[in-house]
Nucleic acid binder design. Structure first.
Lengths: 187, 187
DNA sequence: GGGGTCATGTAAACAGTTACATGATTTT
DNA sequence: AAAATCATGTAACTGTTTACATGACCCC
């Protein structure tokens, strides 16, 4: 069996819920999984082609005149189980904000404060998107997937709130730095 | 001027503190920035070669018999300022744990609980490493970089504690799921 | 009929890791 | 003398994004 691919895992997983076009697949990943996953067309279409060739996915005509949909085969479902059981791939850390802050002396407290404020704003935007996601999940009460979806929303909420709390702390510290380094304020 | 590179930024930033060998550069990135950054030798050495050719970095002989060190030139420092002012590159989200949890119905509550427990353990390990980093930073009290370093440690602590809190919540929910789906316990 | 969005794909470029090769120096 | 660590580099591969090309369908 070929070596596991993360894109393949995501594609098979989404198709396991419902057959759809490649375009809808990308749409679903962006809107439903966007907080913790992303795929580009340049990944999705070649992956679908490979999966088709390997018999994991078949193309079905849903309605006359409609685009053909990609549906998981039994082999595809087995493969999905196999891939989900693979060890999780941890992304190597690469946080540009923290890199800049670690060398914050170079940029100075004001520029650092702007970076932290930007990060704070992004976290707030995330919280809004998560509030919508929370409402969507609650509207699906009763579906067997509902508790699992709730889990992922909850993860985003915890992370976003942690960022907010950190940012407030950081902004206070940077303000005190600014004040002590320029006692008379900026000329 | 060439387009900004993240690796270049990190390399110039580390060298701005102190001249060192490529090997020590990697070591420094792994141990000091490891919580939020990473670079491999395959990136570092070609980057150093390019920076040397571009006059951003010069090679100096520190001591007789010792390996030559890479030192930032004035042009290198200007370039660093330029790169640090570039907009932060946000990594596309790719969280394998949350992907598996979103489709948690496929794996079932027990396997999901194992995934969450693993994530929890990683967060706890991070907290231990951060506690050491916190002690290291505090030992450097008085250095002008100290408050900035403290900021990055604090970010890690907030994130790790958020993961712990989420994981506990998630494990409780998964346990109740397991209980309700298999009322008599696993046969 | 024109603009938007649905839909599928390819090509080029890029970033990054892994594995390998090589050798000096230091420690045991 | 051997083993570990320090040190520099290259080559191959992989995964991923971006940009481009193309056309059908829908609704205003």
């Amino acid at each position: 069996m070929p070596k596991p691919s993360q894109t393949e895992t995501a594609v098979l997983a989404v198709l396991s819920v419902e057959p759809m076009t490649g375009y809808a697949l990308r749409e679903t990943i962006t809107t439903r999984l966007g907080m913790f996953w992303s795929e580009s067309f340049g990944q999705i279409y070649p992956t679908l082609a490979r999966l088709r060739k390997a018999g994991m996915v078949e193309v079905v005509q849903a309605e006359e005149g409609r685009s053909a949909l990609h549906r998981l085969t039994a082999a595809g479902h087995d493969r999905l189980l196999e891939l989900l059981a693979e060890p999780v791939v941890l992304a190597p850390p690469r946080n540009g904000v923290l890199l800049r802050l670690f060398f914050g002396e170079v940029l100075g407290p004001e520029a650092c404060a702007r970076l932290v404020a930007d990060a704070r704003r992004r976290a707030e935007e995330n919280l809004e998107r998560l509030a919508q996601a929370r409402r969507d999940v609650e509207a699906d009460a009763g579906r067997p997937q509902q508790p699992y979806w709730s889990l992922t929303v909850s993860a985003g909420e915890h992370a976003a709130r942690a960022t907010l709390a950190w940012a407030d702390e950081a902004l206070a510290l940077l303000e005190s730095l600014r004040a002590s380094s320029v006692p008379g304020g900026p000329a």
